[in-house]
Design a protein around this nucleic acid. Structure first.
Lengths: 247, 247
DNA sequence: CGCGCAGTTGACGTATGTCAAGACAGGTGG
DNA sequence: CCACCTGTCTTGACATACGTCAACTGCGCG
């Protein structure tokens, strides 16, 4: 398994280092950062809207999501998080949570005190930049989801989401042979895509019939990446996975 | 007029100071920041997707928007910017633009070199935090728009957008008597809300018929704020306009 | 004066929602 | 080990918010 749940600091260090090469000193400082591990069952709220957390969390295993409710009780999932993500890093500078974070599968989460993060940022400005950048990538993903939900058909939207999750999981070593574990119900997919669960069912069937995805239990496989990418109008630029060099 | 286009630094200082009280030294440093002014006509691209800007911009007068296109050429406007906003501050840490910025009315924009911003941030960590926070508020607005586009009816969406613009303009002193200048076409509203221009027309008529808004040329008036707020399911929490005190 | 863009209106089409019934699978208790 | 139960997914019939197309109006600008 590429994931190392018992070394949460390493997961964070590897992720930051991959786009923002760290010095030994910075690496050492991150290694020292206290992270409190916690196992969480599926469908549990981790942070609620309106709260004022004194810590941020780091996903180590499993999946979480960020969501809000409309007045009619309809839920919009605004982001899905995979291992390595820090879903509420924003709370470091925005006192009040404007969304809720919940687990969508059983997961392991690490908690980091804001106090510790602030100290770290004060001493290492480059780490500040790295964390800031993380939140900017989150924002970029929100923008792409807006395009997805606002302008694309259910079919394209779904294909796009599968592409995104595949690439993000690949980046943390959780994809093998174009195949990955993705324990998510159709109802949650519906909330993420802004359609109904019934329509998710039909849309997935269409994607399967077209040979773009295969699903067995919670295992998703992509037999033809190029075709899925095209169907989802997917361009990974918005994930900012590399610091693209040159002009 | 509350706006001072000839003192761009002041606009920025006032905005940052209002949520993040600045020391005299920080204020002085911001005052020194070179800002290059430029007048821009309506419907001009200011920064394009794929570019690698060496500067960020600050809106001084008028309105701009951030957008992307789907493969079918449909446009999603992901954000509207009002005076005081920095639409592409993100480019400070994300090398490649993942969206385009364009004027939606004639406007005055100030350009700030990344180099200068970086120097400023290195010397004044609290300013780093303030700028970081700005980008976090942008992200929060994207999230609310996702909820808006994904889960609410056209009628509610439109009411919500009007509420948001009113509050944001109010924050920079551009609202008088629940009334403000908003030179935006219905086609652009359509692109922002993820509906068609024809449907915008009908929706605005419904809002007018219900006495929630009045429109004369480019002047928008809100006769009954409480009712509009309710119709738009609007809660300004997500704008993070104050650092809410206490638990 | 007239061109052109923005907005309006009506008729009609459709992607997606709603409701409701049934199938299936996984977990639990007897 | 079976029986049951609950949550998830599927399927069909039908409803609707919103899209599409096209014609028309009005107004600002050259």
């Amino acid at each position: 398994m590429a994931l190392m749940p018992h070394q949460p600091n390493d997961l964070m260090i590897r992720k930051l280092d991959s786009i923002f090469p760290l010095s030994d000193e910075e690496r050492g400082a991150l290694q020292q950062l206290p992270i409190l591990l916690k196992g969480i069952k599926a469908d549990r709220e981790i942070v609620g809207i309106g709260e004022r957390p004194a810590q941020s969390c780091l996903i180590l295993e499993g999946f979480t999501c960020a969501y809000k409710l409309s007045h009619l009780g309809k839920r919009q999932i605004m982001a899905l998080h995979v291992p390595g993500d820090m879903p509420d890093l924003q709370s470091l500078h925005l006192a009040v949570m404007d969304m809720s974070i919940a687990s969508i599968s059983a997961c392991t989460v690490g908690f980091i005190q804001h106090e510790d993060l602030r100290r770290l940022c004060e001493r290492y400005p480059r780490l500040t930049a790295a964390f800031w950048r993380e939140t900017l990538v989150d924002a970029s993903i929100y923008r792409e989801w807006l395009l997805n939900v606002g302008q694309r058909s259910a079919y394209t939207r779904m294909a796009h989401l599968v592409c995104e999750i595949l690439i993000r999981l690949k980046a943390v070593g959780l994809v093998e042979e174009w195949s990955f574990q993705w324990p998510i119900t159709q109802e949650k997919l519906a909330d993420a895509l802004g359609i109904t669960a019934v329509h998710v069912s039909r849309t997935l069937q269409a994607l399967r019939a077209d040979g773009l995805i295969r699903i067995e239990k919670t295992q998703v496989s992509v037999p033809d990446w190029e075709r899925l990418k095209e169907a989802g109008e997917f361009d990974p630029l918005y994930l900012h996975l590399q610091v693209r060099k040159g002009a």
